[in-house]
Amino acid sequence: MDLGLQHKVAIVTGGSEGIGRATARALALAGARVVICARRADVLAKAMHDLSAETGTEVLAMPVDVREPADVMRLVDGVIARLGRIDVLVNNAGTSAAAAFESLTDDAWQDDLDLKLFAALRLIRLAIPHMRKVGGGSIVNLLNIGARQPAAGSMPSTVSRAAGLALTKALSKELAPDQIRVNAVLIGLVKSAQHDKKRNPTLDRDRYYADMARQRGVPLGRVGEAEEAADLIAFLSSARAAFITGAAINFDGGASAVP
C-alpha cells in the first residue's frame, strides 16, 4: 500500500529505541525523510546509522532533551534549515513513571509534565506554522491506555497522558481548518527496553513476555510488538488516513475496558 509519504518530512521524538525507532523505520521505508531525536547521543547515533542502512535512505538525528524549550526550538530550526519543511510530527518521547500519590513530590510531577505534556505542546506549537505552509500535516501523540482508565498508583503518568488526550481532542478541532490532523495512539503492553531491563536474565525473553500477557489479562494472549505499533502510527501519519482526526486508538490487544 502506498502511504503517500514520499518526500514528506517527519520528526519522531524518542526515536532511538522501541516504538520510536520502529516508527522512524516504517516512515523511512514509506519514503519519508525522517529526523529522530533523543537524549542519549551514543544510542541515537547508532539508531541513525542502523536505520539508514536498513531503509536505504538517510535518517537524520539530533541529540535533544525535549523537556528543554531551547532544545525543542533547536530541533525544529534544524529540521527546517536542513530539510525545509515539516509534514509529520510523532510525539513519542516519554518513560513510565508510576507511584502512589502521596509519595510524589512537586519535582516529580513537574518532570513528568515537562516530558510528556509540555514537550508535545511546545513541539506542536512550533510545527504548526510549517505545516500550514505545506497545506497541512499530521500529528500523532503517543499516550497510554491509562489516560482513559487510570489505576491506583499510576501517577504521574496517567495524569500527564490524560492531559495529552485532551490536547489531542481539542487540537484536532482547532487545526482541522488548516488540514492538520491530530490523533493519538494509546499504548498497552508492548515489548520495550524498559520492560527488558526488569527481566531476570535467567528467564527466557519469550517466556517473560508470555507470562506478562497472562498476568495482565491481555485478551489476545500476547504482548504487542513495536513494529505493529509503528505500522499504525505510519498509517495515521499518511495520506491514507486523510479523513481521520481526533481519534484515540487503543493499541493494547483488547486489554482496556474503555474503547
Rank of each mutant, 00 (worst) to 15 (best):
Thr95Lys: 10
Val12Cys: 10
Ile187Asn: 07
Val218Gly: 02
Gly164Pro: 00
Thr245Glu: 11
Gly224Arg: 01
Ala119Ile: 08
Leu83Ser: 03
Glu58Gly: 06
Ala61Glu: 07
Phe243Met: 13
Arg214Glu: 15
Asn183Leu: 12
Leu236Lys: 02
Asp178Arg: 02
Gly94Val: 11
Leu83Ile: 04
Asn250Ala: 08
Ala242Leu: 04
Asp42Thr: 14
Leu89Glu: 03
Lys173Arg: 15
Ala242Ser: 15
Phe118Ser: 10
His195Ala: 00
Arg216Leu: 13
Arg216Glu: 14
Ala127Phe: 03
Asn200Glu: 01
Lys197Tyr: 00
Asp196Trp: 00
Asn250His: 01
Arg82Cys: 08
Gly146Thr: 01
Phe118Glu: 07
Ile80Pro: 00
Gly146His: 02
Val59Lys: 08
Gly137Tyr: 06
Ile249Val: 15
Ser52Leu: 10
Val34Asn: 00
Phe118His: 14
Asp71Thr: 02
Gly18Phe: 05
Ser172Arg: 06
Gly224Leu: 04
Ala176Tyr: 01
Val72Ser: 05
Ala170Asp: 11
Asp252Ala: 09
Leu83Val: 02
Phe251Arg: 10
Glu225Gly: 03
Arg207Val: 14
Ile11Arg: 05
Thr105Lys: 05
Ala210Arg: 14
Arg25Thr: 08
Thr13Pro: 07
Arg181His: 09
Gln149Trp: 08
Gly94Lys: 10
Thr245Val: 12
Gly56Asn: 12
Leu126Ser: 13
Thr202Glu: 03
Ala162Lys: 01
Asp77Trp: 09
Gly253Ser: 11
Val159Trp: 00
Leu189Ile: 06
Ala108Asn: 11
Ala170Cys: 11
Gln6Trp: 11
Ala193Trp: 06
Met73Pro: 00
Ala81Gly: 12
Ile11Glu: 08
Ile86Gln: 00
Thr13Trp: 06
Lys133Cys: 08
Leu5Arg: 06
Leu143Phe: 04
Ala98Tyr: 10
Cys37Gly: 05
Arg74Ser: 15
Asp196Gly: 02
Arg199Asp: 00
Ala26Met: 07
Ile187Leu: 15
Ala184Ile: 04
Ala61His: 09
Leu51Met: 06
Asp204Gly: 10
Gly31Asp: 09
